[in-house]
Write a protein that binds this DNA or RNA. Structure first.
Lengths: 110, 110
DNA sequence: AAATATACATAAGAATCTTAGGTATAACAA
DNA sequence: TTGTTATACCTAAGATTCTTATGTATATTT
């Protein structure tokens, strides 16, 4: 991506949001989805994503289930009930965050 | 602030943007301005701000000038000519960043 | 046969912040 | 006058979150 450091701290809410919308995704799919939603500009690295997924699972926000497709392993993740609460909260924070950016940078749509 | 890690990576563009708009500011003033622009929600810590100002100056993005007001030192910063170019670029990145957030989080205004 | 894509994973190090401390002056309250 | 709050600068240690580099393995395309 253009300036990776902008996205520092935002990966976690992104993953949670995508799982809220898609119900069930595997890691590689998440990287593709973010690329697609941002016209190829935002590339989540695997070195960031997989450890994050593991810690979200350890926190009880996500739960996983393995499947084999074409002899290749996929690890599907979805929100737990607790994850759904976290998701609502996280979404509120992001909404506020974007509002703040619009105020600070004078980006408010006319 | 609510979730400090969201703002990780965004402090630098914020400082540059404020100096683009206000022409000349000192550190303490920047923390107050950000608080005011975000209804008290975003608090820039001095431990983050001052080292950042120093490194922006070392990079040639900012230049400083000391003044004494009421026996207290103030260090005013402003953008250098090079800083103004950096500012334009940085602003473009932020605009794109916010657009991406709106796409990922489905925040596009109706 | 080699390269690319899919799909997972970890570890070292970089970047960016928080927390905690320090110095000093001015204004206000107890 | 003594303590507290506000102003105004600063640094260092540590936490968090990422990038970069590397590894394993299978499937598909060139």
């Amino acid at each position: 991506m253009n300036n990776p450091s902008l996205y520092k701290g935002i990966l976690r809410p992104i993953v949670i949001r995508l799982l809220e919308e898609k119900k069930k995704m595997y890691g590689f799919e998440i990287t593709r989805e973010v690329k697609s939603l941002t016209a190829g500009r935002v590339k989540i690295t695997e070195g960031a994503l997989y450890p994050l997924l593991h810690s979200l699972e350890a926190e009880g926000v996500l739960e996983s289930e393995q499947q084999f497709v074409d002899n290749r392993m996929r690890k599907y993740y979805k929100l737990t009930p607790r994850g759904k609460k976290v998701s609502k909260h996280s979404f509120g924070e992001i909404t506020e965050f974007v509002t703040h950016l619009q105020n600070i940078f004078n980006l408010k749509p006319a």
